[in-house]
C-alpha cells in the first residue's frame, strides 16, 4: 500500500515539531494491554491497535540426536490475512523477519532453560511449542509478539512428571500441580523506525510510520542491562552514536515493559485464587 506524498509530509512535519500523528512523543510507547487467559500459557496482547494471540503448549518428544539432554523450543508465527487490508509480497518477508527475530530473542539467547526440560536423557524431553497469531496489524507486530510470548511463557505450567528408571508418568492437573518453566531471563523487544533522513527515530511505529520509514531497528533487552538481539537490516545508514542512543532508550523501555508483564501476571494470579 503506497502512502501519498501529502500524508508523508504531514507525518514528517509533525515529527519535526516533536509530536507524532497519534499524539505520542517520538519515544513514547502505545498502551500495552496484556490479557492473561484462563488456560495456562494463553495470552492476548494489544499494543495500541496491534493485536496478537499467543498460545504455549508442551508435548513429550524424542530429543535431537546431537542434544540428548536438552528440550526443544519451537516458535510458529503466522500473519493471518485478517490482520491487514491487503496482502502483498512484503507480508511473506515480514513474517519471515518476525519469526527469525523471535527465534533469536527466545531461543538463541536461551530465555528458557532447555536442560530443565529433559525427562529421560536421550529418550524423552519436553518440546515447548509457541504459537503466535497476529490478529490485527497496526505496526510493530514483533514487539507485541515478544511481550505476549514472554508473558505466556511465564504464565505457562507444564504437567508434572515422575521418572522411575525409564518409566515416565505424566500427572494430570488434578493429581499434581503443574510446574512452571525455568526462565533464565526475560528478553523484551523494542523497535525503532527512522524517519526524515534519520533525524527522528520513533519508538513503537504504527503501520503508517512503518510504511514511511527509511530504516528500522529491533533491539531485544533484558533486566540485567544485556542486549539479547539486534536487527538493523539495511535501510538508511545510521551513525554508531545514534544506534547506541537507541540502545540506551531500549534498555529503559524494556524495564518498563517487564514490570507491566509482572503486574499483569500478578493480577491474573490473584484472580485465579
Amino acid at each position: 500500500m503506497q502512502v501519498s506524498t501529502n500524508e508523508r509530509e504531514f507525518v514528517l512535519e509533525a515529527l519535526r515539531s516533536g509530536i507524532r500523528v497519534d499524539g505520542r512523543k517520538p519515544l513514547g510507547l502505545r498502551t500495552v494491554d496484556i490479557d492473561i487467559g484462563a488456560d495456562y500459557g494463553h495470552v492476548n496482547v494489544r499494543l495500541g491497535k496491534t493485536q496478537a494471540m499467543v498460545q504455549v503448549m508442551a508435548e513429550i518428544v524424542a530429543p535431537y540426536p546431537d542434544r540428548p539432554t536438552e528440550g526443544q523450543v519451537i516458535i510458529h508465527s503466522e500473519l493471518s490475512p485478517m490482520a491487514t487490508r491487503n496482502e502483498s509480497i512484503k507480508s511473506a518477508e515480514t513474517e519471515l523477519t518476525i519469526n527469525r527475530m523471535l527465534e533469536r530473542i527466545i531461543r538463541k539467547s536461551r530465555a528458557i532453560e532447555t536442560e530443565g526440560l529433559c525427562i529421560v536423557a536421550g529418550h524423552k524431553v519436553w518440546r515447548i511449542v509457541i504459537n503466535i497469531h497476529f490478529l490485527d496489524n497496526d505496526g510493530n507486530l514483533l514487539d507485541a509478539a515478544c511481550i505476549g510470548v514472554m508473558a505466556a511463557l511465564l504464565h505457562f505450567r507444564r504437567p508434572d512428571v515422575t521418572v522411575i528408571g525409564q518409566e515416565v508418568t505424566v500427572h494430570t492437573i488434578e493429581e499434581r500441580n503443574p510446574v512452571a518453566l525455568s526462565i533464565n531471563h526475560v528478553p523484551i523487544c523494542v523497535s525503532f523506525a527512522f524517519l526524515d533522513d534519520g533525524q527522528h527515530p520513533v519508538l513503537d511505529p504504527t503501520l503508517l510510520e512503518e510504511q514511511l520509514c527509511e530504516g528500522d531497528m529491533m533491539i531485544a533487552v533484558n533486566a540485567h542491562r544485556e542486549i539479547c538481539a539486534i536487527q538493523k537490516a539495511g535501510g538508511l545508514g545510521m551513525e554508531t552514536s545514534q544506534l547506541m542512543l537507541c540502545t540506551t532508550v531500549a534498555l529503559e523501555k524494556g524495564q518498563e515493559i517487564t514490570e507491566m508483564i509482572q503486574k499483569a501476571l500478578a493480577e491474573a494470579k490473584t484472580k485465579m485464587l
Partner: peptide
Amino acid sequence: YLPKVGKVALLQMEARLHIDVFEKVVA
C-alpha cells in the same frame, strides 16, 4: 559499515551481551 560515509548499514546480533561490552564490540 560504509567507511567513507561513516554510517552503519547493517547491525545484527545474537546471544546476550552486556551493554558496556556491546559498545566496545560494535566499535
